[in-house]
Design a protein around this nucleic acid. Structure first.
Lengths: 192, 192
DNA sequence: ATCAATGTAGATTCATTCAGTCGTCTATGA
DNA sequence: TCATAGACGACTGAATGAATCTACATTGAT
């Protein structure tokens, strides 16, 4: 049930672009994005281009070029990004809603595996199609702020930082409710 | 978020072995298993051997050989089979409970992607670690029976079948409750 | 003892993913 | 106009997964 490296890197970079936009530095170079998460630069370039062609980011060429989000983070659904890079969310093709294809089992209507995997697909989609890039960026930045850490890509990030009382993390210890999940809890009243 | 072909074929074959055991034909040849789902025979042989080494099935060699389940279907958790064949359920390594490995992001505690994927992992595990092979076999056979269809691998399967009133499928149209899912509904009071 | 059916094992092919290399094009600023 | 920094593009190669091919070992029946 893996997310490919491509998909992982794409999401990480989008999240960083979202954070940067929030901090005022909308334009980031590929090398900056790669350095922030220690990703292979040229591989990331391929991915960024794929995101550009799909309309998630736009590029600026030339000396002070880079990438920025092409639309507001609230309009970027995580599930759609994963589908672009990694294909359907469904574990097997015969339970995909967006890219159905028949499997070779004799009778889909009576296939126990199919029913099981349909549940898995719906569980995955319920999460990834629920949250947008803005949600993930919000969770990330909020956690950083409550920990007294600086946001990456901010102009002040270069200056030495005073870690104000690292007592933070007063967040209740991530009880993992199967129906709601960590992200929902961290978002609190922000979500929905 | 794909399940590999290996994993899919392994589960399909285990389900068929479970159905066969229920019908009295515990021993199935690889060619029978392959034919039932139209799988590549030699590839399936590799997979069956892997299942044998892990103790899920046992083999009988020689002329009337084949494979059978090595333990009761109620003891075979779907999630454990998937983990054996496909590795951890988690989409990325840093949220795996059974095979954690650090990712290259600068700070896992403040990684929004990690929190999101943790939710996905928990959602997947909640399903795959909840159901056993017996549950999936039960769902499959029950659906077949209510449709008036013969169970595969039964001795009577060769005889022509009278499809008794195919009015079946009175099952409520699979409302996909995100918390419970199709399998749970079909199992009804059987589950838990 | 021999034969045929079957499981066991290893090598090999093919496609895809992941990653990296090299070179080109374009905008900026000196 | 020239140098530089960055996006863009084609290509190469390692690693993995999927599938096939060939040979070998074991068993039961004749």
């Amino acid at each position: 049930m893996k997310l490919s490296k491509r998909g992982e890197y794409a999401l990480r970079s989008l999240i960083n672009l979202g954070i940067a936009a929030k901090v005022g530095r909308s334009l980031l170079r590929v090398t900056e994005l790669a350095k922030a998460e220690d990703l292979p630069v040229k591989f990331l370039e391929q991915i960024m281009q794929q995101l550009r062609e799909a309309g998630y980011v736009e590029s600026v060429r030339g000396k002070h070029g880079g990438y920025r989000l092409a639309k507001p983070a609230t309009k970027i659904v995580i599930g759609s990004v994963v589908r672009l890079i990694d294909g359907p969310l469904a574990p097997i093709g015969c339970v995909s809603q967006t890219a159905y294809e028949p499997c070779n089992c004799p009778d889909e209507a009576h296939c126990g595996l199919r029913m099981l995997m349909l549940d898995v697909r719906n569980a995955i989609a319920a999460i990834l199609d629920r949250y947008t890039l803005a949600d993930v960026v919000e969770v990330t930045t909020r956690k950083l702020v409550t920990s007294g850490l600086p946001l990456p890509f901010s102009a002040a990030a270069d200056a030495p930082v005073i870690r104000r009382g690292a007592k933070a993390s007063r967040l209740r210890a991530a009880r993992t409710s199967p129906t709601e999940g960590v992200v929902h809890q961290l978002l609190g009243d922000y979500a929905i």
